[in-house]
């Protein structure tokens, strides 16, 4: 079963209150060396049918028109995943 991964991030110029709160917590927990955190969203879309260019284009349209709000967010990636949950082979290792 083919899956498309969509990643959405707050626009760089927009202050991300959630990421800022996480960044503020890290030094208190003993994790030093991180100067910032930004929090975004990852969606996994299950495709009905084969992994075609058309399906990927359709997922990109969904990402831009539904999964993100262009006023505050950017779609930073729309790509094929090997499996839901494990996503990229590199990440699954």
């Amino acid at each position: 079963m083919a899956h498309v991964v969509v990643e959405v991030m707050p626009k760089p110029e927009i202050l991300d209150p959630q990421g800022k709160a996480v960044a503020g917590a890290l030094p208190r927990l003993g994790f030093t060396g991180f100067t910032g955190v930004r929090q975004g969203k990852r969606f996994e879309l299950e495709i009905d049918g084969p992994a075609t260019d058309e399906a990927l284009a359709s997922a990109r349209k969904v990402a831009e028109e539904v999964l993100s709000n262009p006023v505050i967010e950017d779609v930073v990636s729309v790509h094929w995943a090997e499996q839901a949950g494990t996503a990229d082979p590199a990440e699954a290792r």
């Binding site: 707050p10 927009i14 202050l15 209150p17 959630q18 709160a21 709000n69 006023v71 505050i72």
Partner: peptide, 17 residues
Amino acid sequence: LCETHLLAGAMIKNTQL
């Protein structure tokens, strides 16, 4: 109304969360 673009802008989490 902002999501439909009848009005400009958007709302995000309150700055103090």
